[in-house]
């Protein structure tokens, strides 16, 4: 069995969840601070689009932006001499784009569920907004942030459509596990696909079990005082 797709997937999954986590949390915080309701709804809709649109449509947009004739694609070539499309970096960009809404929405919901009075109290006590975010809102939404992270990680790991569009399916370079499974089956090697499928199930199951264990522990701690 060729293990390359496993390493590529793990590398892509780990790097992209780091980026997705910080973007998701930070942007959820910024959107939460928008005062005007109509603007908030619009911005939230736009940020959720990658979740509801077909991944190939997102991949199409990414190609328009990061392709060699796209604005950011051109910029990267002229600044760093890096071609993004069909490079390993493209698998990360695709995974981040598609998994971002899950992280963003989980974070936003977690922040909103923090007791409003707690936040108001912090303000009356003179705490600055950024301090309130770091010391009160984040610690009191850990449960939601953990489940958001796991969901976004597994979604990024399983990314197929947008990755195929922007990164292609280059063995040893951009061929992640889902693409490897597709390639093997398309080539009629169903048997070679089995181990990949098994590894995929294993990683995702482990991630979800970690999430559930964490939640059970938090709840038990709460009950036992």
């Amino acid at each position: 069995m060729n293990l390359e797709p496993v390493w590529i997937s793990l590398k892509t999954g780990c790097i992209s969840i780091l980026i997705t986590f910080f973007f998701g949390v930070f942007i959820a915080y910024l959107v939460g601070r928008i005062q005007k309701e109509s603007i908030k709804i619009m911005v939230d809709g736009l940020l959720t689009l990658p979740l509801v649109l077909p991944p190939t449509v997102m991949g199409f947009f990414l190609l328009m932006i990061f392709g060699k004739n796209g604005p950011l694609g051109k910029l990267f070539i002229s600044l760093f001499g890096i071609k993004i499309a069909f490079s390993w970096l493209a698998t990360v960009i695709s995974a981040v784009t598609i998994s971002f809404p899950l992280m963003y929405r989980s974070s936003k919901a977690a922040f909103e569920s923090v007791d409003e009075d707690m936040v108001s109290a912090a303000r009356t006590l003179g705490m600055k907004e950024w301090t309130i975010f770091r010391r009160i809102i984040i610690p009191n939404s850990l449960e939601g942030l953990v489940s958001g992270t796991i969901l976004a990680f597994t979604r990024g790991l399983g990314e197929f459509g947008a990755t195929a569009m922007l990164a292609g399916n280059i063995a040893g370079k951009t061929q992640t596990l889902p693409l490897a499974i597709y390639s093997e089956v398309a080539a009629g090697n169903v048997e070679s696909a089995f181990p990949y499928v098994g590894i995929m199930i294993g990683i995702c199951l482990l991630a979800v079990v970690v999430m559930n264990t964490y939640q059970v522990r938090v709840q038990r701690k709460r009950k036992n005082l």
């Binding site: 007791d115 009075d117 707690m118 108001s120 109290a121 009356t124 003179g126 010391r135 009160i136 610690p139």
Partner: peptide, 27 residues
Amino acid sequence: VQDRKVGYLFQNFALFENMTVYQNIEC
């Protein structure tokens, strides 16, 4: 709100759940 110097005792007391009694006061 931060600069008004108006103390507010909430009905549910709104203590910071993630902090101990000492930390609630110290922060």
